[in-house]
Design a protein around this nucleic acid. Structure first.
Lengths: 255, 255
DNA sequence: GAGTGGTCTAGACCACAAC
DNA sequence: TTGTGGTCTAGACCACTCC
């Protein structure tokens, strides 16, 4: 006997999750993506409670740590909040442009814009004074490639990217005009692991304003980025100057 | 029979970790902190291999998932890289001002500077047009408090902070001049869960330049921050204007 | 082949929140 | 008291890297 008018405000939805145990994709990630999809397409609304961990595990035939790992993934993304003694709730339906290690080129391409690159200069030589303040672990001895590029999106100049790379790792001039720097590095078998970025702002120089099509005085957003590969080797020091009137940086924070 | 001249280049150090099983601090976190401390104080150098997981677990009497959780914490911070079939290596000795959800006040206080606040205005009323672009989920009906403060560090003006809060949550004028906004919210039992920030730059207005002690033209770093509590309620919309010549924002990225 | 991290299971007890 | 997430154990098998 079911009374349809009975209040069931806290009845969590049982998502129709399908897991493929033969897939190389880990089960916890399959589950996390299934839940994330339900949040994004609105099946789970902000404020809704997730099915509890025990129910999930028995229903899907998983062990609890596996289910927890899935939910933990979502919690770190800020999509979901866990509260002991209460349950897990959906926080936001936000399509979360999350802080990740990607190139501006990739970002633009993914968001459907049309990135172009104009190579301004490509020089080889000893480490440049410009990069010293950023990286104190520079090998004084080695040769460095200094690349300066103008990044253009939808026909409008967007940023001036100056990158310094150890000559042994640096892609050729041709590779750089076709694709983004990080894509080029990836094809060289370099796996990036961590980057530190210092973001600030200043006035544009006359040259910068001219390249970016701004009238002085104009403000620019600056980023000093230091990137390491998975062996801890310094891969790149980048000084980026963004046209502040056309560019902003999204950052998500969790406590 | 031990030959001291034998090459043991890959012998990982066995850290003298002490775990307190009666502490309310989880074991995995105790272990993570012990390793992090060793990295920061130089006992573990960048490039050094960590003791492997199996050895850690048997030596410390832990289960493997516990040890993995500890190392995973460090990996997410970018302190350490795990490579299947190889081991776990220390990446950087970096004292990592990590991206977290804290107030500027807390940040300054922790870094040993002397933050002060000057309350510029405190008004109550319907939602301000200024905050609409940021948050489309504003309750049109409710009253909002609009607070404008000047943040000063070591006697130098550093930022103009404009915050909009639902009147039901907002701290009083007195609370705000004594402490940071987030600390005041915490004492009201509000637990923050996630924030989204959009960072850009522009030229300072005449009023901003005057408050911040800059000569125009001057650039400022701007942040539009939207903060939610652990129930998904909108807690705050903040528009921050930082003096670019005296402030930068550090962000760490992992793939 | 030996050693490493990556994934997963099947339980256990605890701390906290709501009723 | 009940239900929830938080922590932890003691294993297992697999995939990858290096020799």
């Amino acid at each position: 006997m079911v009374d349809p008018s009975a209040t069931q405000p806290l009845e969590p939805k049982q998502l129709p999750v399908v897991l493929d145990r033969d897939s190389p994709v880990p089960l916890y990630h399959q589950l996390a993506q299934a839940i994330e999809a339900a949040i994004i397409n609105g099946e789970l609304q902000p404020g809704d409670r997730l099915e509890n961990e025990l129910s999930l595990t028995t229903r899907l035939g998983l062990a609890r740590p596996t289910a927890r790992q899935a939910i933990g993934e979502l919690a770190r993304k800020g999509l979901v909040v866990r509260k002991r003694g209460v349950g897990t709730q959906v926080l936001r339906a936000q399509i979360n442009r999350e802080t990740k290690l990607s190139s501006l080129y990739d970002d633009l391409a993914k968001s459907g814009r049309h990135p172009q690159t104009r190579l301004l200069s490509y020089t080889v030589g000893p480490p440049d004074d410009e990069i010293v303040p950023a990286a104190n672990e520079i090998e004084e001895s080695g040769e460095y490639v200094r690349v300066r590029r103008l990044r253009i999106a939808d026909g409008k100049p967007l940023a001036i990217l100056t990158n310094h790379l150890p000559a042994t790792l640096a892609p050729s001039e041709d590779e750089l005009s076709d694709t983004g720097l990080y894509a080029a590095l990836r094809t060289h078998g370099i796996r990036l692991s961590v980057a530190h970025q210092r973001v600030s702002a200043r006035l544009m120089s006359a040259e910068e304003a001219k390249l970016l099509g701004e009238r002085r005085p104009a403000a620019c957003l600056t980023a000093l980025r230091v990137v390491y590969d998975d062996n801890g080797r310094l891969v790149e020091v980048g000084q980026h100057v963004y046209r502040a009137s056309h560019y902003s940086l999204d950052v998500s924070l969790v406590p």
